[in-house]
Design a binder for these strands. Structure first.
Lengths: 115, 115
DNA sequence: GATAAATACCTTGCATTACAAGATACTAAA
DNA sequence: TTTAGTATCTTGTAATGCAAGGTATTTATC
């Protein structure tokens, strides 16, 4: 019953969505997620996830020098990654609908509010 | 990347919402979840979850005879369960907002659509 | 050169949780 | 007795987010 449990199976899709927009690197994704309201997402979460997605052929990466630190690993979507993103978006919409139906239906139980 | 992974940390909250409406038993909750679009939720998921929530003091249960089968275990919310439900609803709203922001922002990248 | 801070990536081990598979038991019908 | 539907519980497995810790680069300060 924590915020972190709720992100299981969702974070990867969000990362795909973020990567779709433009090439980004891991460290930057963590900052973006924080802006979007996910809170501080651990690097121990992000990096293994990105490596797994690369292993699965959803993303590719290239290293580029940075002006202020070590090289950055920029990620891009593959065609397979784009397909996976579409599938994720559908899964998310379905989950969103289901959850909202469950909590709405039951929250209003006994007060039809027909006025 | 499956539907089941997405439900982690969400199912328990939905069960609390369902229980809030009126006394229900596990078998019935599975049917309800299916109606709401969650798909078939395994009994190996529901029962351990309910037992855990009872152990944590979120719900109480009473056994009642059924007309067509073994006794049913009806669950009700405790005050603590009601509080947990409120907390879940806030977490869910936040997650929903965050995910939608992440996928919207990035989906529209490069086409401001100012027309 | 030494030290510190910010950036940037990676690894190991752990906790949580949904599920498949299977067990148990009661009722009703054949 | 057998079959089917209802109803609950247990065991073992897989997936995944995270804490904690490690490595490396750049810039700035001493």
């Amino acid at each position: 019953m924590s915020q972190t449990q709720m992100m299981k199976g969702i974070l990867d899709g969000c990362l795909l969505a973020i990567i779709r927009g433009k090439e980004v690197y891991g460290y930057e994704m963590a900052e973006r997620l924080s802006e979007y309201g996910f809170g501080e997402v651990s690097e121990g979460t992000i990096y293994p996830l990105l490596m797994r997605m690369q292993r699965e052929g959803l993303v590719t990466s290239v290293k580029k020098a940075s002006t202020a630190g070590p090289k950055r690993k920029y990620y891009s979507l593959t065609d397979k990654g784009r397909q996976e993103l579409e599938a994720f978006l559908e899964r998310w919409k379905r989950l969103e609908r289901s959850v909202n139906e469950a909590i709405r239906q039951e929250t209003n139980e006994g007060s039809e509010g027909s006025a």
